[in-house]
Design a protein around this nucleic acid. Structure first.
Length: 189
DNA sequence: CTCTCGATGTTCT
DNA sequence: GAACATCGAGAGG
């Protein structure tokens, strides 16, 4: 399958968030390949979005979002969790898409070992999938279009009818307008 | 099943 | 010093 290129990440943050549903996230550790189909994402639309980290301007933490599209923005939160985003839009426009959940495809047992858990609890949350795929701060700024260690490929075509848009999770700090914006995309059950 | 609450440390005010 | 794009254990129905 083809690795998603830089142009894919430039088509618009909301479109990327929707288009990432059904794609395959791949993590190579040594000779082993762990992967999963993306089933839930959220769009964070730059300086005008009060839920986005870049809302208050460039800081040390969010500087990767100001860089080129197609790179990973990984940050640490709640004192114990990493979250994975893909940078979108053209360089200098600080937007990103948060990967919130995947369905395991390859390397199920490896993920179970890292998570010390099985089944639904394996990768159904943004911090859970990072733990399952061993993604940490060292991937902040990683080029996702190079096909090394961590990247995203085409996988399944999901009809728009099967994708629902809902408000984003865990952003009580944002303004009402942005709290209610339907910028979270999920495959319908 | 649902709800509440504590963990834990980096970042920003 | 407060807040945080979360998770999981434990209590209760």
């Amino acid at each position: 399958m083809t690795i998603l290129n830089k142009a894919f990440y430039e088509i618009g943050t909301l479109k990327v968030a929707q288009a990432l549903i059904g794609k395959k996230l791949i993590r190579q550790i040594g000779g082993i390949e762990l992967s999963g189909m993306i089933v839930e994402t959220e769009a964070y639309c730059g300086s005008k979005d009060s839920a986005c980290h870049a809302h208050r301007g460039k800081t040390n933490r969010n500087s990767v979002m100001f860089g080129p599209p197609g790179h990973a923005y990984v940050y640490f939160t709640y004192g114990m969790h990493y979250l994975l985003n893909t940078v979108t839009e053209t360089q200098g426009n600080p937007c990103a898409v948060l990967i919130r959940a995947i369905l395991p495809v390859d390397g199920l047992e490896e993920m179970e070992a890292r998570r010390k858990r099985k089944g639904r609890e394996l990768t159904n949350g943004p911090a859970k999938l990072c733990q399952a795929l061993e993604i940490d701060k060292s991937f902040n700024g990683w080029d996702l279009t190079a096909g090394d260690k961590l990247w995203v490929e085409g996988y399944k075509k999901i009809p728009a009818k099967l994708i629902s848009a809902t408000p984003r999770i865990g952003i009580d700090y944002a303004t009402e307008k942005h709290r209610n914006a339907p910028w979270r995309f999920v495959i319908k059950a």
